[in-house]
Amino acid sequence: MERTVAVYGAYGHTGRFIVAELLRRGWTPILCGRDAARLEALAERFPGLVWREAALADAASMDRALDGAGAVINASGPFLDTAAPVIEAALRARIHYLDTSAEQRAAFAVYERFGDRAREAGIVAMPSVAFYGALADLLATAALGDWPDADAIDIAVGLDSWHPTRGTRATGERNHGPRWMIEGGALRVLPDPPPLGTQDAVLLTLSEIVAVSRHLRCPEVRSYMNLAPLNDIRDPDTPPPVASDERGRSAQVFVLDVQATRNGNTRRATAQGRDIYAVTAPLIVETLERVWAGQVPGPGAYSAGQVFDPFDFLGALSPDPLSVVVES
């Protein structure tokens, strides 16, 4: 079990980045998922790694897949379908659970349905440890700094393009529930946005809202995204991402800007980098390292900003794979 982690959905676009990052940091991944042919093909790319087919509806196969692992990373969406079966298997095995979900309700369910059970099982459960979710949560926590609370937090995502993976498209087809924002200090249903094309950005909230709501005191939290990537992702003819460097990253660039205001004062934290799928790998593996080292309060369900010093965590990732600037 020493530094061995099961990666469910290992053959997916993000999953392959995670496997490579785990190997780079000295972990032993177990390649897991629903498609035996794709697992076998991935194992040929990473000689020596074990692969195990596991069906979500087959608890016995899920248990076999996690056998010998000290943690499981779930990189297989839609997480509305995959999170519960994988975390149930993690609870039975009493191993840590992390996932890369951008889906608000999937993340919320990990906290609300499984938080107490994770504590009882002695494990840590952390959803949305990815570009969407953990990164904005860490930046918001850094922006607040020594403030005990904020009047408002605005999160802006800027992408020059968005070539969606198969998993992203499947999640979009599956995830039709209303989105939340934080208004009046509580999770509220996001109002319908105006038609696309009439503005440069749109109010678009993802799992970062759920993460922030776990620990930051702020009555108004909203997230925005520019329209170019949304137009890409809504176009069925937009191709999947294509590698453009030796690390397999696409040419996509991103800016994630968080602004916090309190009593008329403003603080800002900004991250810039390349490829939202690729940057998820160092985010989640850095989190795994810290969970493994016991840098959490104890068993339970947490967001990254809730348990980690954001300056230390983001500093470990800067200047590569992302650069971070915090302005007080």
Rank of each mutant, 00 (worst) to 15 (best):
S207H: 08
L230K: 13
I233H: 07
V279P: 03
L144M: 15
R113W: 04
G33R: 12
F108D: 01
R174D: 00
W27Y: 13
F311W: 07
I18N: 00
G33M: 08
F114S: 00
V19Q: 12
V296D: 04
Y111H: 08
S101T: 13
E21H: 11
I233C: 10
Y277W: 05
H176K: 15
G315Q: 10
R64V: 07
H13W: 10
G158Q: 06
R247M: 06
S101A: 09
V124E: 00
W162A: 15
G115P: 00
L139P: 09
S250T: 06
R217F: 10
D149Q: 14
D149T: 12
D81S: 12
L206V: 09
W292K: 08
L283K: 13
A260W: 09
R179K: 11
R16Q: 11
F254T: 14
L322K: 01
P297C: 02
G33W: 01
A41I: 04
A102F: 13
G77H: 01
D160A: 11
A83W: 09
P178M: 10
T100F: 11
V221I: 06
A281R: 12
W51A: 03
L216V: 10
P297A: 12
T198M: 03
Q199G: 15
A75K: 03
D245P: 14
C218Y: 13
H96T: 03
M126G: 11
Q199I: 15
A102W: 15
A271V: 06
R45T: 12
V325P: 06
V296R: 05
H176N: 11
R52G: 02
